[in-house]
Amino acid sequence: MNYKWDWGILLQEPYFGWIWAGFGWTCAVAILAWMIALSLGSVIGVLRTIPHPLPRAIGTAYVELFRNIPLLVQLFLWYFVVPEVVPREAGMFLKRGLPMPEFWTAVVCLGFYHGARVAEQVRSGIGAIRDGQRQAALAMGLTTTQVYRYVLLPVSYRIIIPPLTSDFLGVFKNSSLALTIGVIELTARSRQIEEYTFQGFEAFAAATVLYSLVTFAVMTLMHVTERRTRIPGMISLEAK
């Protein structure tokens, strides 16, 4: 193969700084999006388990809508379409008013997309709890809200730690799509280094290693947490 290796390039400025800056943006997008996904997903997931047709329908509609459109299309909808169909001032705010519009667009888009996935996990987590617990809680005089707040959700979160972890890693990986609207995160940075230096192997390898390391670290953390919080007598759901 006709290729001049130069691993040193990764330690040279500005490329070294670029990789870390890109990594920082990847983490920022992923963590903020995950916060949205977790809160939104919990609400939607709970809606889908409530024994009333209307909230169920809303929950189902949300999940079906966000799961059946490719993430990249959703990103383009948020970025190109939403600012044009809302009132003019609001559109201008989305395009220029808020600082770093591209970044926040990506965060919101990923948050809503993964919210649908989290909702499915929360729902299956609640579904995995034997109905006796709900009935017992109701029999003790708890209101429905209290049943969710003190019984169903805490138990459910503990058994869905593994699938939630893979969802978090999903957000982390999918944050790379933000490069299509101009957020210069890790993958975009590695490609930029490729464009500036033509040392593509080294640049992509650096990104690959960073992504793998994060996955490895998060998985290890997950196993520790999972062992600590495991409920005796209940099997936690498999990671996807």
């Binding site: 190109f80 600012p83 044009e84 201008m92 395009k95 220029r96 519009p101």
Partner: peptide
């Protein structure tokens, strides 16, 4: 061009 036209 799209970014320019939409005022982004």
């Amino acid at each position: 061009m799209l970014n320019l036209e939409s005022g982004r």
